[in-house]
Design a protein around this nucleic acid. Structure first.
Lengths: 217, 217, 217, 217
DNA sequence: GATGAATGAGCCTTCATTCAT
DNA sequence: GATGAATGAAGGCTCATTCAT
């Protein structure tokens, strides 16, 4: 799995000053550096000094753009959640109106390198570990939020209805949701035992098992 | 979900200064307190002072029984991994020799309150978040280790062979493994949206979808 | 003996927050405070809190300018060694080209209050006590380093040659070197039994005994 | 230089119990172990755990035989001072009544391996480093105490009188005393640059220079 | 806006000392 | 007497945060 890192933020060093949109760019720059640090060092070892250094900025700057470390982390999580949601919504928009096609599009989107790469998965995982004890984080973890789950469930129900399956669409939706997250977790931890492609196939084979008449092997 | 906490160690406050089963018992006592703290505060906020206080002992005690915080955490993780493995092995031993029965036993064991409760799940998750950047942890995360995965795969193959399914047993095993972990993650994070029973049913419905002739609904 | 303490660094309290000659000046300020603490409390009882307090700064400052206590102490020792060497080199430069004159200059330099005062001697002694078990210290202890000893030896040889003495110049050099250090030790410990002047005279009387035709009484 | 360590105390493990003289033996055993630790680790790093372990005894024992760490260290220093004094007194008693002979005996005693070995020198040096800030130590450091110095001075005066030297006997005594201590310091620090024999010869050559008619080369 | 020196709270760790056994 | 578990104070160090420049 590649460690995809969008280089579209940090490298533009010439316009560090003189822009009006600086504020937003700076925040983004720091957020990306935060993700880097979370991926490299984990949550507990991530310090503001790391983040600032990674962004090529000075130490005090973080407290200027974000008021505290806590708020930087929340903003980072929020950024990731929004990016994730935008990604699957875009994938959905490109799919046909057929529920099976849409479901497949969602699953494929989940393993798109833009979303599913070591760096981001590691950052997600770092937040998961802390989410339990931090209500602020819980709101944005998991990435697959309420809307996503309801969407999954509606699609499963549509397929179940249209295909006369004797399954419980809710259970399938819950399982699919959990399966996707579980595969992410395995991808992140697994030292090469599981490829992104194999993970996607495992997810699709679950769809095939659940809705054999819609997802022919 | 209940916060199961074995009260067999800490509650005996009258012999806190007793010299009996000391070494091993004390270590266990501190490990349990560590799990408490991980569940309550998360990895990053867990301090030795918390652990000691939770065990009703003094600050210096941790470095007496474990040499460092790091070693305490590793021992805690190891303890949890061993407990988990012992649990599913025991469940497996009680099941019949029928692969379907055994698979069901494994899945049920995974959602047994003794193993699957908020406290322990939260502790697991705390370690997951740090495992990426700590090789020492990776060895013991995930709980479902190599042996477990191979067992799943063998059972899936047995069922696939005996049932003439047109599926890839490896993919199913991978998916089942990920599904279980994903359900755990959801259970831990879910603020009551998902019950342990619902999670188990979702897992079983996955088995039913994959091996319909072995797991009748 | 006076407790000479150069007041050129710390006393300027009004610009304590100044940014001027910062880095180097602050390091010097902390080093001087370290010497103070070593002299007052000894090596074992010198804490970073003492040093910081003595410098009128906060606790965290030492780890900011020096990375650790160890490095602060090494820097302190190095500073003292360099100061000592600069001092005798300067004294030597001011002397005539006559070996006897030069030798006398070296001895006198050794008991110059700028170098030989309770505060500095105590600091030296503190390091001597730890040098055995710390290789890092050994390099800079003794003050009278390799170069110094070879210089002494060359001078003794010059005098021995020019004066037809029947002595072993190496032995005399070794003895002189040890004598100077021993006198320092006595000065430091001696509760007023030995004055700096008496010590210098004792050293000179050694020269007179060794090279009677060069050092008339 | 050898690391002479009298094995007459610790090795008698069979009579650890059942003796009446235990108390004294135990204290000696702990004192010897303290010297070991001071020599190996230095003053600052010497802990009671080290001492106890070195003596093959349990941790709590030190506070039983000595009331505190401080008192153990004082007792150790006292022991060394007494041993040193007994040694030179014995050497003196064996010498003839000739002052020159006595002086030589004292110097030779100072470099006797029983007294002058790495282990003991290192222990002495450890105390020197702390003596300044600890009045309790100062009383016993230096080893060459008041009586010793007065003895040296009287001998120097005797020789000066009987030899018609134009020297100041007091200065010579002071110098000799310092020279001996300085040589010890060099022996302890020097990584083999100076042998015990060379040190003794340097001291004797000083006597020869000061009193040429009494100490022919 | 941006920097980085400075602060100080809090953590891990060490260790002298106590005390039940 | 002897042991070693247990305590708690204190030290070194890290790091989020502040603020003068």
């Amino acid at each position: 799995m590649t460690d995809a890192r969008p280089a579209n933020v940090k490298s533009e060093s010439e316009d560090r000053k003189g822009r009006k949109g600086t504020r937003h760019a700076r925040r983004l720059q720091l957020i990306e550096s935060t993700i880097d640090s979370l991926a490299a060092r984990g949550y507990a070892e991530t310090t503001l000094a790391d983040v600032a250094k990674g962004a090529g900025l000075s130490r005090g700057i973080v407290n200027f753009y974000f008021e505290s470390k806590e708020k930087l982390l929340v903003a980072t999580l929020q950024h990731m959640a929004e990016e994730y949601a935008a990604h699957w919504r875009s994938a959905l928009a490109k799919a046909s109106s057929d529920p099976a096609d849409q479901l497949l599009a969602l699953v494929r989107a989940d393993f798109d390198p833009a979303i599913c790469n070591r760096r981001k998965l590691a950052a997600w995982c770092a937040f998961w570990g802390e989410a339990r004890s931090r209500p602020t984080y819980q709101a944005h973890c998991g990435s697959r939020d309420e809307a996503y789950q309801q969407l999954l469930e509606r699609m499963c129900r549509d397929l179940a209805d249209s295909g006369n399956y004797s399954i419980d669409p809710h259970s399938v939706a819950v399982a699919l949701d959990a399966l996707l997250e579980g595969l992410w977790l395995r991808l992140m931890m697994g030292s090469a035992k599981l490829s992104r492609d194999a993970a996607r196939e495992a997810a699709i084979s679950f769809l095939a098992a659940s809705f054999p008449r819609h997802f022919p092997r």
